[in-house]
Design a protein around this nucleic acid. Structure first.
Lengths: 170, 170
DNA sequence: TATGAAAGGGTCGACAT
DNA sequence: ATGTCGACCCTTTCATA
């Protein structure tokens, strides 16, 4: 699919504040509210926008501890098997298979270090897990959710280096 | 601060869909729209809710490649110095200092592998960086943004193991 | 702190360009 | 694909219990 400048501006506005009215966005970019709504509907249908969500502060809700856990699995463990297993645990907020020595990398959020320990124990108990290697997060420097606004490199000339680039051939 | 069941239900509803109307939320939990709005305003003031954002699909926008990069820094490099440096790069969506051999772990999103390479080169050029160790993501198994709805362990008895727990003494 | 009423504004569909 | 219009619903504020 093809994204023009208007689409990217609309996405940028909604990423910054998902409750911005269509009228307000339209006013900024020179479109009517209806036209903006139509584009947003299309962006949702095509999957560019997957939904709208409140940004919450895990710390304010008691989730003060995070860790990254490398998973070393048995030879013939499939990625989907790992995914199904780790997705059982709500503390696992992110997981992927990676290149390198480890097979997978998990990002865990928990209420305290003991909670982290319990979750790692549970995951290590999965039959396909050979061993784990954990790193506790000491201090967060950059947070996905807080990156709102840092959407564009000032000095980028290559359109691929924009945070919300036009669609690019895969 | 103290969160009661109503607050947690409101947060849950807004995390699932940030554009849910106050009237709709109130209908679900047995409160008037006005009462819900007051609670949301309070949750924003206290920092539990930091804002509302559109969930976007990086892939649909051309960001098809991600990597994790471990940073090994010179002896006396402060966390904030690392943070300031890596935050310059919009491709760095997440960064933190961690326990273990490496000093920091970065999560990078880019449009392709060559783009990842360029970003790592730029970061490695920072004076305090001694060396880097990168892992390219092969397949994503669990995504923060997609975890919406997996907010609660079915079998959890400990209130700390709920995704949106009541406030817990630090 | 919750509710209810009134005013203002947004959304969303239909129709025309 | 965009703009205009109109009905309906929501938000917001204020007064009240």
């Amino acid at each position: 699919m093809e994204l023009d400048r208007l689409d990217r501006d609309i996405i940028g506005a909604l990423v910054e504040d998902a409750r911005t009215t269509y009228a307000e966005i339209g006013h900024r970019i020179g479109l009517s509210a209806s036209a903006v709504k139509r584009r947003v509907d299309r962006l949702r249908e095509t999957g560019a926008i997957t939904g709208f969500s409140a940004r919450i502060s895990p710390q304010a809700l008691g989730w003060t501890t995070e860790a990254y856990v490398e998973l070393f699995c048995q030879g013939k463990t499939s990625p989907s098997a790992i995914g199904i297993a780790v997705a059982q645990h709500p503390e696992v907020v992110s997981a992927c298979t990676i290149t390198g020595e480890a097979d997978a990398l998990l990002h865990i959020r928990a209420t305290d270090v003991r909670h982290v320990e319990r979750v790692i124990e549970r995951i290590a108990a999965e039959p396909f897990v050979v061993r784990t290697k954990s790193s506790i997060v000491l201090s967060r420097l950059v947070d996905d959710a807080q990156r709102i606004g840092a959407t564009r490199r000032q000095d980028a000339t290559d359109p691929r280096e924009h945070a919300i680039p036009a669609a690019w051939p895969a």
